[in-house]
Design a protein around this nucleic acid. Structure first.
Lengths: 227, 227
DNA sequence: AAGAAAGATTAAGATTATATTAACAAAGTA
DNA sequence: TACTTTGTTAATATAATCTTAATCTTTCTT
């Protein structure tokens, strides 16, 4: 459940946006001037705020700067009737993440909100679609434990699954045998075992045989990498 | 130094954007169709990519989706002549972070790029490029273990990689054989070996052959220096 | 300039790393 | 318990890397 703050003095617009967002399952808090916005949105539990630039008293730009100085993570979307380029640039430079000009289509506002939230969540690692890992044409669902490549279901054993998950959580990154041993097995010292090699081989047979692109590559003397 | 990828088939626009961004200190790589975009921007060292939606062959939406599946972090900005709301929504929903309609003002593009990069930096908490070592036109990614010179991928063995990394961590600094032996090999006393000389030679063959500038220079009686 | 020292280059052999297979052990299931 | 599946170890084959040592080239010293 995402909590969105909306600072907008035009009550008609505010109401429409609130209704629309609530239909999408968002929790919306409306304020109608800059001071109130600053006061309310300082709270840490807002996932995103929408600021109108033109408001009585403190304007959106000032609110944005002030919010930014206290909370660098908060996604801020500016909303305004001003359409001139300089206004947009000023808005974005004051710390906003996006800028939308009125009149706007609700659909576009929604898409921009989603883009911002998506990014926020990817970056902070707590994406709501976190259980879906994918790379190239392979995907792994940590809930259903289903693995598919190019749409084709692949059956993996528990260890193979764990190993693939480790690779999918670290794409384009070389994983040393040591690292794999610690994270997919519970080996913290060198036991002289070759389980990892054997399992990489098992995994390759299942996810690469019959497909043209290789996924797991060997870097001799270093480890394995998914790319 | 941020590296930006630009996929745009209109060479006039591409040129203008490139020039403008380069004036701001960005490094810009242009491609002119979707397939090329996918191929080039899959590389791990782009900080942001700009995709035109309408391109010959694979379009921007498809490129965006595919890039997203491999790299969740990469900021993507879509650029297009289509101004309809549905196009914007489709673009944003395919994984883009922002969407700009042509004709646009360069100032706005720049402000939006800066907003995206700012967010990226804030969200990841630290310089996202601290695993990238570089000197002149050579770069080494300590995550993916990829080495490139002037954009060309160079395959190094484990020892060669370790040796290059040592040089890149000590640019413009003379490294004695003793120092190299201790840090890239595990030799702490003089064994009378010439492995280092041999490996510097191997490394030179891979990173200097075919390029005009020398990187590793010999200081007779002292050691080697990267400059 | 000649000889000595330092470094570059090459090739062969030693060493190590990896892929693959099979056998065995452990765990789960009927 | 017997059977099946999964996980682990070990052995082998193959390939790549690393090291050594010999020779060639350049630089330094006298």
């Amino acid at each position: 459940m995402f909590k969105i703050g909306l600072a907008e003095d035009d009550l008609k617009i505010a109401g429409l946006v609130k209704t629309g967002l609530e239909e999408q399952g968002y929790l919306v808090t409306i304020v109608s001037n800059g001071e109130e916005a600053l006061q309310t949105f300082k709270e840490t539990d807002f996932n995103l705020v929408i600021l109108d630039v033109m408001m009585p008293g403190m304007n959106g730009i000032a609110v944005c700067k002030s919010l930014r100085s206290g909370n660098k993570d908060l996604p801020i979307l500016m909303l305004t009737a001003l359409g001139s380029i300089d206004d947009k640039v000023t808005g974005l430079n004051s710390g906003a993440d996006d800028y939308l000009v009125k009149p706007f289509h609700f659909k576009e506002l929604l898409a921009r909100i989603e883009a911002l939230l998506r990014r926020q969540h990817v970056a902070t690692g707590k994406d709501k679609t976190d259980h879906l890992l994918s790379f190239d044409d392979i995907s792994l669902n940590t809930y259903s434990k289903e693995v598919k490549r190019a749409g084709i279901l692949i059956e993996l054993t528990a260890k193979e699954h764990t190993l693939l998950e480790l690779f999918l959580r670290n794409p384009n990154r070389l994983l040393s045998r040591q690292y794999i041993a610690e994270n997919a097995w519970d080996i913290s010292f060198d036991t002289g075992t070759n389980v990892i090699d054997v399992y990489v081989n098992f995994l390759r047979n299942k996810i690469e045989k019959g497909f043209s692109r290789k996924l797991i590559h060997t870097k001799i003397g270093m480890g394995y990498i998914l790319k």
